[in-house]
Design a protein around this nucleic acid. Structure first.
Lengths: 367, 367
DNA sequence: CGGAGTTCGTAAGGTGTACTAACAAATGTG
DNA sequence: CACATTTGTTAGTACACCTTACGAACTCCG
C-alpha cells in the first residue's frame, strides 16, 4: 500500500505515547511494569512516556496495589478519566441540536439542547451551534480537551461540511470556524461516522463493522480492518438512496422509487402502522427484509462481522431485525456469512459519544 | 483507530526506506536532491538511505543528468528494475496453473504453465504448484526477490488457504510449505485480491476501487482508502453468491437461486448466446444490469471511485458494461455517485502481475 | 577569463528516542 | 535473617534524523 509520509523519531515517540494511552484506556488501572509487558516497550521507556503523560495531566498515579507474592508492590496508574472533559455535539436532529459535556470515558455529565427554527437559514443554524457550544463550555468544570461535532451530510476530512441539505449548508468550513471561535481543538465529521466510532470504541470490539442509522433518513458508518472508511468523495455510508430490490417500491423524496430510505424510514413505518395497527408485525418484517436485501452485498464485499442498527428500538427491535437477519443469511453464501449478526446498539446518544471519541482519538490517539 | 504496536527507531528507518523506494518506483529516475524535496527528508538522510539501497542492489546510479541552469549536475538514480526478478503464480485457472518470471516493473519475462489433471487431489495440485515454481526459478536469470501466489478460495493473511473448493484444498499452509521448499520469501493471497493490487499499482491510481473478476465464478478484490480490505473471516470480496434482485433468477451451483455468479458467469452467458445468437446484446445487457444491481450498495457504502472488471473483453466490453454502468447510476444517489465508472481493466495476466506486486510490497514496501 | 552565485552530494557534530545494564526499594520465602 | 523476586529509576549505549558546513561542478556576467 502507498507509504504515507516520512516518519521522524518524534512521530515514533508520539505513536508509542498513544499506544500507552490506548492500552491504559481499554485495560484500565495497571502498573508501569504491566504496561511494559503489554506493549513490548521496556520499563524504562514506559516510565519516561508515563512521566510525560502525568506532566500533561492525562495520567495519574492511583496508589499502591496490595498484592500477594514477592517483589515490590506496583504503583497503579490510570488515565485521569475525570481530569479533562470533552464537548460533544450532534447536529443530526431535525428540530434541535443536542450537546453534552462528557468525561474521557464517554459518560455524559451535562446536557444542553438548542432548538432550531423551522426553515432556519444556514447562518441561523451556525449561530445555534455556536450558542450550544458556548453553553457547554460554560457548563464544563474541568479543562476541555476539545470539541467533537457529528454533522449530517457529506463532510470532508478537514471538517468542512460539503453539503447538508437539511441545514442548507454547503461548503461550510465548520471545523475551522469553530476553531477560530473557541480556540481549542475541533473535529467535525459525519454523524453516522461518529456513531460507528462510538460503537467501535465502547461496544464489542470487532474490527469490521457497519452501523446503520435509521430515522427520518438512513445512513451508515463503516469500519474496515479497524480503519474508518471515508470514500473518495467523502460520501462513504450514503446508502439511503440505494434502490433496494427489483420490484419497484415506494416513492422517495429524491424522486426515485424503491430507495432503502423510502422503504425503512421511521416516519414512513409509523404511518403505515398507524393506518393498519393489526399488520404492524408484517410491516416491520417487510422493512427488515428490505434492509437485509440492501446490506447483503455490502456484508459480503467487506466480510463484515457485525451490522449494528441505531434508531428507535420499538421499531427496529423485534420483527424488523429478525427479518433483516434472516434475509441477510438467505442472500449470502452459507458457511461463510451464516454467523453475521445484526444487532441493535446498546448505546444511547451514540452520535454524541462518537463525537467525544473523535476528540479522544485526535488528542490522545485513543479509540 | 486502534494503535497497532510499538514503533522503534529501526522501524521508522525501514518506513522511510520504503518511502524512498516507493517514490522512485512511481516517479522513475530522479536525483537524491529530487527525492529529498519529494519526501521531505533532508538530503543527508536521503543519501544515507539511498546508499543502503545501492548496497542491497535495489537501486543504482544511472549517470549524470545534462541540465540547463546553474549548479552541479545531479546524479540520476533509479530502482534497478532489471536487477532482480519476481516469480508470479496464478492458481485460478481451471485446467492449468499459470506462472511467470517478472521484472520489478511487472513486465513478463518468461512464462510457464502446468496443466492440472481433471479431479486432481489436493496433493497433486500442490505438486503441480511446486513443479511450476521450480521451472520458473530455473528460468530466472537474476536474483529472485520472492514468490507471489494468487490462489482461489479464502486465504488467511499468513498465506494459509482455508478453503479452495476447486482445488480441494482446506487449511493448506501453502505459503509456509513453499517457503520451506524454496527458502525464499513467499506470499500467498486470494486471486482477486492480487488482481486489485495490480490494478492499484499499475492502473490509474485511485485509492478506493473494487475489481470484479468474472469467469467461471465471480469474485472481487477491494481497496478502501489505499488499504486492501481483508475482512474478519478473510473472505472480503466473496460476492459471487449474493442474491441479486428480488425476482428469483437462475439456479446456482450453490443451490440458491439468483446468485450474482449464476446470473453473470462466463460459461452461462456463452451458453445463452450460443442457444440464441440473435439475442446476444440483450443477454449481455441483462447480465450487466444484474452486476449493477449487486454492486450499487457496495459502491455507495464505500464511496468507490471506480469499479474495474476483469474477464473476457468480448463478453464484458460492450452491452454488458454499458448496462451495468447505467443500472449502477439509476440505483444510486444522483449528484454523488453519478460519475462512478465501470471499466474493463487494461491489464493482461492481472493475477500474475498482482502476485508480483505482493512481493514488491512485502520486500520493498512498494505498491 | 575569472569571480560570484547556484545546486548537488557528503562530512561532522548535535538532538532525541529507545535500548541494555545495573541498582535501590520493598516484599515474600526458606 | 539471607536470599530471591518484582518494581521503578539511573547511567550509559546505539541508532536515526537533524543542522551546519564544505567541496565539487556548473552557469552567468562583468
Amino acid at each position: 500500500m502507498r507509504t504515507t509520509g516520512k516518519v521522524l523519531p518524534e512521530q515514533a515517540r508520539s505513536h508509542n505515547r498513544s499506544l500507552v494511552l490506548q492500552t491504559l484506556y481499554h485495560r484500565g488501572e495497571m502498573s508501569r511494569a504491566d504496561l511494559s509487558r503489554e506493549t513490548g516497550l521496556t520499563r524504562v521507556t514506559i516510565s519516561d512516556l508515563v512521566a510525560e503523560c502525568i506532566a500533561d495531566g492525562i495520567v495519574r498515579e492511583i496508589g499502591v496495589r496490595e498484592v500477594a507474592g514477592p517483589g515490590k508492590p506496583p504503583i497503579v496508574i490510570d488515565i485521569d478519566r475525570d481530569g479533562h472533559q470533552i464537548i460533544g455535539v450532534d447536529l443530526s436532529g431535525t428540530a434541535a441540536f443536542q450537546g453534552a459535556v462528557l468525561n474521557l470515558d464517554g459518560h455524559m455529565l451535562h446536557r444542553r439542547t438548542v432548538s432550531l427554527p423551522v426553515d432556519a437559514d444556514p447562518d441561523e443554524a451556525y449561530a445555534a451551534v455556536v450558542e450550544l457550544v458556548r453553553e457547554l463550555i460554560a457548563a464544563a468544570d474541568r479543562p476541555v480537551l476539545g470539541i467533537g461535532v457529528g454533522s449530517p451530510g457529506i463532510v470532508r476530512p478537514d471538517g468542512t461540511v460539503l453539503s447538508a441539505p437539511n441545514l442548507s449548508w454547503s461548503d461550510l468550513p465548520l471545523e475551522q470556524r469553530l476553531h477560530d471561535e473557541f480556540a481549542m481543538p475541533v473535529l467535525v465529521r459525519n454523524d453516522a461516522n461518529a456513531a460507528v466510532l462510538a460503537e467501535y470504541t465502547f461496544g464489542a470490539a470487532r474490527s469490521d463493522i457497519m452501523l446503520v442509522r435509521i430515522g427520518r433518513g438512513v445512513g451508515a458508518g463503516l469500519i474496515a480492518g479497524g480503519q474508518a472508511v471515508i470514500g473518495g468523495r467523502f460520501a462513504a455510508g450514503e446508502i439511503g438512496h440505494v434502490v433496494t430490490g427489483t420490484d419497484d417500491g415506494p416513492l422517495c423524496a429524491c424522486g426515485n422509487r424503491g430507495c432503502l430510505e423510502a422503504w425503512v424510514n421511521a416516519p414512513h413505518l409509523l404511518a403505515l402502522i398507524e393506518a393498519d395497527p393489526a399488520r404492524r408485525g408484517e410491516i416491520l418484517a417487510q422493512a427488515g427484509r428490505r434492509l437485509g436485501i440492501a446490506i447483503a452485498p455490502i456484508v459480503a464485499a467487506l466480510d463484515l462481522s457485525q451490522v449494528v442498527l441505531a434508531g428507535a428500538p420499538e421499531l427496529l427491535g423485534g420483527e424488523f431485525v429478525e427479518a433483516a437477519t434472516k434475509t441477510l443469511h438467505t442472500r449470502t453464501l452459507d458457511g461463510v456469512f451464516e454467523d453475521v449478526e445484526i444487532v441493535l446498539t446498546a448505546q444511547r446518544d451514540i452520535v454524541l459519544r462518537g463525537a467525544a471519541v473523535m476528540v479522544l482519538s485526535a488528542q490522545l490517539g485513543v479509540s
